[in-house]
Simulated assay, not measured.
Amino acid sequence: MRAMTIILASATAVSMFATAASAQQNMTGTITKIDRLNSTISIQQTQSGTVGAGSGAIQEFKVQDTNKLEPFHAGDKVNFSAAEGGGTKTITDLKKQ
């Protein structure tokens, strides 16, 4: 019984680590909308893959510091990282390409 508990705890820890690691991946995309009043930014993620791959869905992200949005405009291509917590996706890093 104790061995089974250890195995289940290990499996849970590995799955949580994999989820956290994937949440912090660097992604690329194009800014489609910036709402400075509500501290949100919408980004259409670029799909990786073969030539001719389409663009991803547009996702809206929260930005903790609105001042970080000043140099950005709709249409800018960006590299970004985001984290999800409490059902809200938040930009953790945003840079122009």
Rank of each mutant, 00 (worst) to 15 (best):
Arg2Cys: 08
Arg2Val: 01
Ala3Phe: 07
Thr5Cys: 07
Thr5Met: 10
Ile6Asp: 08
Ile6Arg: 12
Ile7Val: 14
Ile7Trp: 03
Ile7Met: 10
Leu8Ile: 03
Ser10Asp: 08
Ser10His: 05
Thr12Trp: 00
Ala13Thr: 02
Ser15Cys: 09
Ser15Pro: 01
Met16Ala: 10
Phe17Pro: 01
Phe17Asp: 10
Phe17Val: 15
Thr19Gly: 00
Ala20Arg: 12
Ala20Phe: 09
Ala20Glu: 06
Ala20Met: 11
Ala20Thr: 07
Ser22Gly: 00
Ala23Glu: 13
Ala23Asn: 08
Gln24Asn: 13
Gln25Leu: 07
Asn26Phe: 04
Thr30Val: 15
Thr32Leu: 04
Thr32Asn: 06
Asp35His: 08
Asp35Leu: 10
Arg36Ile: 13
Arg36Pro: 12
Arg36Gly: 15
Asn38Pro: 09
Asn38Gly: 12
Thr40Lys: 12
Ile41Ser: 02
Ser42Met: 14
Ser42Arg: 14
Ser42Glu: 15
Ile43Ala: 03
Gln44Gly: 04
Thr46Asp: 15
Gln47Thr: 09
Ser48Ile: 02
Ser48Tyr: 02
Ser48Asp: 05
Gly49Tyr: 08
Thr50Leu: 13
Gly52Met: 04
Gly52Thr: 04
Ala53Gln: 10
Gly54Ala: 11
Ser55Ile: 08
Gly56Trp: 03
Ala57Glu: 11
Ala57Arg: 07
Ala57Gly: 05
Ile58Cys: 07
Ile58His: 06
Ile58Pro: 03
Glu60Phe: 01
Glu60Lys: 09
Phe61Glu: 04
Lys62Thr: 09
Val63Cys: 04
Val63Gly: 04
Val63Pro: 05
Thr66Lys: 15
Glu70Thr: 10
Pro71Tyr: 06
Pro71Asn: 06
Phe72Ile: 13
Ala74Trp: 08
Gly75Arg: 04
Asp76Gln: 06
Lys77Arg: 12
Val78Glu: 04
Val78Asn: 07
Asn79Val: 01
Phe80Asp: 03
Glu84Pro: 00
Glu84Leu: 06
Glu84Tyr: 00
Glu84Thr: 14
Gly86Tyr: 08
Thr88Ser: 13
Lys89Tyr: 04
Lys89Cys: 02
Thr92Ile: 11
Asp93Arg: 13
Asp93His: 13
Asp93Ser: 15
Leu94Gln: 09
Leu94Arg: 11
Lys95His: 12
Lys96Val: 14
Lys96Gly: 12
Lys96Thr: 15
Gln97Ala: 14
Gln97Lys: 14
